[in-house]
Amino acid sequence: MPVYTTNHAPSVLRTHSWRTASNSAAYLLPHLTPSMRILDIGCGPGSITVDLATHVPSGHVTGIEYVPDPLPAAEALAASRGVKNVDFRVGDIHALEFEDESFDVVHVHQVLQHVADPVKALREMKRVVKSGGGIVAVRESASMTWYPENRGISDWLDLTGRMAKGKGGNPHPGRYIHVWAREAGFEMRNIKRSAGTWCFSSPEERDYWGESMAGRMESSGFAEGAVKEGFASPEELEGVARGWREWVGEEDGWFAVLHGEILCWK
């Protein structure tokens, strides 16, 4: 039931590898204790997963991904940092291969927007987290804004939204993920809501973000799918990539992402 619009091409992994526990899961970190057992769903290249493992030195973190493609890079990252209390495997968020109440924390970052039934996924996450204090942690994008105006970036946002909806996904659901949590069986009094941001404005940040986005338009599963499935022409993708690179060169260029965050206690 994944409806992911891209794959794990180098341009995509460049974006995902930038994510860390501090810049993408800060809302969760104060609630971690050293011996916790954590499940990180949608781990990708493992940058957040490995970071989480350093916060639970006497615990353990398991990262799962619905395809095996990024897992060798995740294992290599853990080895390069000397982090041993982590493992990676293939798994399905809708049918987790773990016993009830197996984990102290179940974490997802930018994952529920890419599955067809996020409420079912949350029910499964709730099943495998422990009662009496276990936490389900979710962070999803809610909105994006940038400066200066840029036709290519506007076309990119429109295209990604149309493509995600066309495949059955839920683009940028951060503003209502708490509603999904309630539908999955969590009580509102046990759901803590917050918001976090990413901001890219320095020359180095613009180069990282803008070139990653431009690269996705040129060589990735997203680009292939967009053309093959009729969402965009090659020329339109070229225009989007050109817009991103124009933004990279703007001295006043600024791009921000607002995320919705929830902590759900079972």
Results as ranks from 00 to 15, higher is better:
residue 12 V to A: 11
residue 216 R to D: 01
residue 212 S to H: 05
residue 257 V to H: 10
residue 56 V to H: 03
residue 129 V to N: 03
residue 251 E to K: 15
residue 27 Y to H: 14
residue 153 I to F: 07
residue 252 D to S: 11
residue 13 L to F: 04
residue 172 H to N: 14
residue 162 R to W: 10
residue 148 P to S: 12
residue 144 M to L: 13
residue 30 P to S: 11
residue 244 W to Q: 00
residue 195 A to C: 10
residue 59 G to P: 02
residue 48 I to Q: 02
residue 55 H to V: 00
residue 136 V to I: 07
residue 205 E to L: 06
residue 34 P to M: 03
residue 177 I to K: 01
residue 5 T to V: 15
residue 175 R to L: 12
residue 122 L to W: 05
residue 86 V to A: 10
residue 153 I to P: 03
residue 29 L to K: 03
residue 97 E to G: 13
residue 3 V to T: 07
residue 112 L to C: 02
residue 147 Y to F: 11
residue 109 H to Y: 11
residue 249 G to F: 07
residue 42 G to C: 07
residue 19 R to W: 11
residue 247 W to P: 08
residue 162 R to N: 12
residue 114 H to S: 14
residue 101 E to R: 10
residue 127 R to H: 12
residue 163 M to I: 15
residue 234 P to M: 10
residue 147 Y to M: 09
residue 126 K to G: 08
residue 54 T to Q: 13
residue 261 E to D: 15
residue 86 V to I: 05
residue 86 V to G: 04
residue 178 H to A: 15
residue 82 G to E: 12
residue 32 L to H: 10
residue 240 V to Q: 01
residue 51 D to L: 08
residue 90 V to R: 04
residue 98 F to E: 14
residue 58 S to W: 03
residue 97 E to I: 08
residue 79 A to S: 13
residue 204 E to I: 09
residue 159 L to Y: 10
residue 145 T to I: 06
residue 96 L to M: 15
residue 128 V to E: 01
residue 255 F to K: 00
residue 239 G to T: 01
residue 96 L to Q: 07
residue 36 M to G: 05
residue 251 E to A: 12
residue 257 V to W: 13
residue 133 G to V: 01
residue 247 W to C: 07
residue 82 G to L: 11
residue 223 A to E: 04
residue 47 S to K: 01
residue 91 G to L: 05
residue 38 I to M: 04
residue 201 S to Q: 14
residue 86 V to T: 04
residue 128 V to K: 01
residue 70 P to D: 05
residue 217 M to V: 03
residue 142 A to F: 11
residue 9 A to V: 00
residue 197 T to Q: 13
residue 104 D to V: 01
residue 3 V to R: 08
residue 82 G to Y: 12
residue 248 V to P: 00
residue 159 L to F: 12
residue 12 V to G: 00
residue 22 S to V: 14
residue 143 S to K: 12
residue 216 R to L: 13
residue 198 W to L: 13
residue 171 P to Q: 09
residue 28 L to F: 07
residue 175 R to A: 14
residue 122 L to D: 04
residue 31 H to S: 11
residue 72 P to N: 10
residue 152 G to E: 00
residue 214 A to W: 03
residue 201 S to E: 14
